[in-house]
Design a protein around this nucleic acid. Structure first.
Lengths: 234, 234
DNA sequence: CGTGTCGTTGATCCTCGTCAAACGTTGTGG
DNA sequence: CCACAACGTTTGACGAGGATCAACGACACG
């Protein structure tokens, strides 16, 4: 019925590490009936800020960047969504317009889940409600941490921290290169700085033999020192 | 049974503009039995980051600042809680340690609500779950906005924005002075800048006749121009 | 083979953080 | 109730971090 056709399709509803893990079989069935999965090409927009959305999405495969558009159109990236994550639920639950946009960083398969179904599931299944709450509270804690970081740390410290977080979240391939590929501008839009600053600092890190660079491939050579630079404990 | 004794005590559980508005009479009764209200003197700490909390608080009266401690002990204020607000629920629901601290800005009456009661109410009452979710999603949206602001706006723009937000949130008294009294350092810890920068910019705003200053009293003279400076639409 | 996007480097300027000093205000204990 | 300490506010001087502008090289793509 739905358009699933991927070979290894780890459907997010089936995974036991998502907010859906505590749904009953019946509820999962209902979800499978109502959800609507499709492929988004790299670069495709999933939703756009200040639009009224009427549902959320879960990520089956790929990576999605969540960002806000600030002064003169500069993007500020606030989150990367990975397989198993849900996005777009905030505006459904707060009743506001979407306050961020979502765009696929790679070819990605997402499932659309109607907002009224989300709400009825929260109403009827307390454990599911708690799982969604846990997700939003986790994001809230991270957001507050990031506010403190941006307000207090230097660009150098933040870039080091971002590299470590990207490693933690997306891992590294066989060559110890970050499992996510970003343009310099996107890196700048996470750190909250100018593209040129990112480039200069990456060069410095390379000179100091903390990382190695090959185009967009970033190899982490010295995690310990990067952590030290980032001044981090989270 | 509980220590309520304030004369006008608008108990947060009774208010119809809080997350408790959709609780049944029975649930409210249970809450009244288990909650534990007390007065916090100005400056008193309510909870501290990286401690394990086992409940949340609702504000009956007063104002509470929520902040994180960053590099070399600098506070970053992430939220002001007013009467009717709930605080400290995040760590209960995400299962983490507290990631922020809370301190009374004025003499304030808060009610402690045990975490397991919160969780059981969320489980049993879907509307309550939705109300708590709405609250956390609202905070999440504001946090993401603030990340973008701090990353992209100048200190001048952010200070103007903060003044407007304080006016919107706490109103003004008969003299058009902000209804909340903050030290220059606290203002700096919201904006994310140095105390001296806040002082200088406030002086500029005063010279430009946008505000008037009398000690900690800040009178807003020209909201429109402040909004313009803040570059804001939210 | 041009055209557009991305990455890199250099030069310059300015916002803002830091340090220092002085003054006002508040609070406390003798 | 005064004296002193502790804290908050203000102003000035200075320098560094980082944004901006400009130009060019590298690469992919139609």
């Amino acid at each position: 019925m739905n358009g699933n056709h991927s070979t290894h399709s780890t459907d997010c509803i089936e995974r036991n590490d998502t907010v859906f893990k505590n749904l009953t079989d019946q509820e999962k069935e209902k979800l499978r009936e109502e959800k609507n999965c499709r492929l988004y090409k790299k670069g495709a927009e999933i939703y756009h800020e200040s639009s009224r959305t009427n549902g959320m999405y879960c990520i089956n495969s790929g990576v999605v960047k969540i960002y806000k558009t600030g002064i003169d159109g500069r993007e500020q990236i606030v989150y990367f969504a990975k397989p198993g994550d849900i996005i777009g639920y905030r505006s459904i639950l707060s009743g506001d317009l979407a306050c961020s946009s979502a765009k696929a960083l790679q070819d990605s398969e997402l499932c659309f889940i109607p907002g009224d179904l989300l709400i009825s599931l929260i109403r009827s299944n307390g454990d599911f409600a708690l799982d969604v709450l846990q997700q939003s509270c986790k994001e809230l804690g991270e957001a507050n941490s990031y506010i403190t970081d941006i307000a207090q740390k230097t660009v150098r410290e933040r870039l080091a921290e971002v590299l470590i977080k990207l490693k933690d979240n997306f891992g590294v391939n066989e060559n110890n290169e970050l499992g996510i590929s970003l343009t310099r501008e996107e890196l700048a839009n996470i750190v909250g700085t100018a593209t040129e600053s990112v480039i200069r600092l990456l060069s410095e890190f390379k000179q100091d033999e903390l990382i190695d660079l090959k185009g967009r491939k970033i190899k982490i050579l010295d995690t310990k020192k990067l952590e030290k630079i980032s001044n981090a404990f989270g």
